[in-house]
Design a protein around this nucleic acid. Structure first.
Lengths: 311, 311
DNA sequence: ATTGTTCATAAGTGGATCTTATCGCAGCAA
DNA sequence: TTGCTGCGATAAGATCCACTTATGAACAAT
């Protein structure tokens, strides 16, 4: 009765994703009948149907949905066992998949990659750049091992480690460089260029200005800080960028930088990973490397505060 | 490489518990060589040793320890899949294992058993009585499906449902029945009989009296409320018991009952289960039955407050 | 040295799981 | 209708995996 096998669960998970016996079989690198048999076996030993075999398509039953969710967790945990063994055997070598938010990646990655591969030449770093929500989702699914994001993330399944905090600075056309620095109220009067929806940096900038999450369409959306700065150079408006972006982004643009008077807008960059990650110990060390890269990558080290403590 | 099997994990878990190939093989109902082979296979595919085969005994390696912890979680989750299927197929029938603390069990269980088996004759209730720490541990290990305890428990992996609150009452020798009711300070002057260490009711009583967790040895320990009341009847001292115990425990003892003036000492009885329990929906209904039993089992319903809200 | 205990190894058997080939059914077009 | 197509189920045979019993090897206790 209770002789489920991992193989059956793997096949089930594939079929639940693909909703198609042939394709799922391909994914599992077996023939279609083999998969059909295992699924039937599984349903038999559970005593319930997992799929509705419709004429034209395969669907999960209600029970199948819940089942799939649990199976996914189980398979992730099992895969972690393998990673755990590898780490305990070889230390930090092999594949390590780290995600980074777009407003950090271009400025921190070169330094991180250099430091990590120098310290550990056998490390096979896979890097991915996307917004926080996607990173968190991929962490949960076991598609990433860690992510570098702006804190807080507040996912109970993730461990957060704060690395450093940095200010946001105002980017204005060169012509404005002698004007007084606006405060947050003044900023609301100006044409503010921001990243498109989904970027945490956008929300942080808006919240500094006390603007609602969906502000009047006065402001324009850009898809990268680089674009925004170029637009500022063209006289279209002003924007905010994080301190770490200053050296790179202002090198070739006709803009001027101004720092706000207190209260400073800031963000805290940190690293997160699954509590259950087999790499937990190693990732804590990687986090230190990233902290070093972040501190060093910034122009004036005196600008940086140690990050607040986080669990 | 990554073809671990659940069978291997089950065998591994058995061996990790037994630390003996022969006994573990017995537990798994296979021959000793079969187990040896699977363990070897497992170690091979992990590329690491899990056990140190000493001359006289088998020990887990450091890695094996961590591995065992994770495997236990995985196996529990897998077993829950089976339960989930059964519940979705048949509703609440079959085995349901509920633990109850000793200061609740004798007073509530008869009524609970009667109500549950009447509502659901196919239910196979397994009941276990022990102190909270053990109940929580057995919940985590998947040896229990739910427990009835005094809140809060504050285990993140468990769901708590508050059921009802009740007062503690003072039990004195009959001769004292006309004396004024002492307050918490007065209580400290008296010879207070309490349950032995580990019972939450003991700690609750002590905290009402503002006594440290390990108080002077002036007080005596008993192993059940029944014993304590008998001792009071013999004039050895006084004790506290929860309201629900009054009808049963004072029926045949030469004692008198007194209720405190505010602030009343109280406890909140609730039910807890693993967040991931396949029976979650059903257990919520069971909790309502238990609440009903608790309310009805108490002498004067006007004594009961609705329990405070809990997540 | 001998004996007993314990885990590993060996050889053979049976069942589980794979493959390829084929069937049956539904939808669709002529 | 008839034939075609896509998809999942079924069938038959080959292969592999896990089990068994029997035996070996290491080590401790006597």
């Amino acid at each position: 009765m209770n002789n489920l096998t991992l193989r059956q669960l793997r096949y089930f998970a594939a079929l639940a994703r693909q909703r198609h016996f042939g394709r799922a079989a391909d994914v599992c690198a077996i023939s279609q009948p083999a998969l059909s048999m295992q699924i039937r076996e599984l349903e038999g030993s559970l005593g319930t149907e997992l799929f509705e075999r419709g004429a034209r398509q395969v669907r999960l039953t209600g029970f199948g949905e819940e089942f799939a969710r649990r199976v996914q967790d189980i398979l992730r945990s099992v895969d972690e066992l393998g990673d755990l063994a590898r780490v305990s055997r070889d230390g930090l070598v092999g594949r390590l998949r780290i995600g980074v938010i777009p407003t950090v990646a271009p400025y921190l990655l070169p330094s991180i990659i250099a430091r990590l591969t120098e310290m550990n030449p056998d490390l096979d770093l896979h890097l991915r750049e996307t917004i926080t929500t996607k990173l968190v989702q991929e962490l949960d699914e076991g598609k990433l091992d860690a992510a570098i994001v702006a804190l807080p993330v507040s996912e109970p399944a993730l461990t957060e480690v704060a690395l450093f905090s940095e200010e946001f600075v105002l980017v204005r056309p060169l012509a404005d460089s002698n004007k007084p620095v606006p405060d947050r109220e003044g900023l609301r009067e100006m044409r503010l260029l921001l990243l498109e929806e989904g970027h945490c940096f956008r929300d942080q900038a808006l919240s500094f200005c006390n603007l609602a999450a969906t502000p009047p369409r006065e402001l324009l959306d850009g898809s990268s800080l680089s674009t925004l700065v170029q637009m500022v150079g063209a006289g279209i408006g002003v924007t905010l960028i994080p301190e770490m972006a200053v050296p790179v982004e202002t090198r070739s643009a006709a803009v001027s930088i101004a720092r706000f008077r207190p209260p400073h807008p800031t963000r805290t960059i940190g690293m997160v990973w699954r509590r259950s990650s087999p790499f937990a110990r190693q990732l804590a060390q990687v986090a230190e490397v990233v902290r070093g890269a972040g501190m060093a990558g910034l122009r004036g080290p005196e600008r940086f505060r140690p990050a607040p403590e986080t669990a």
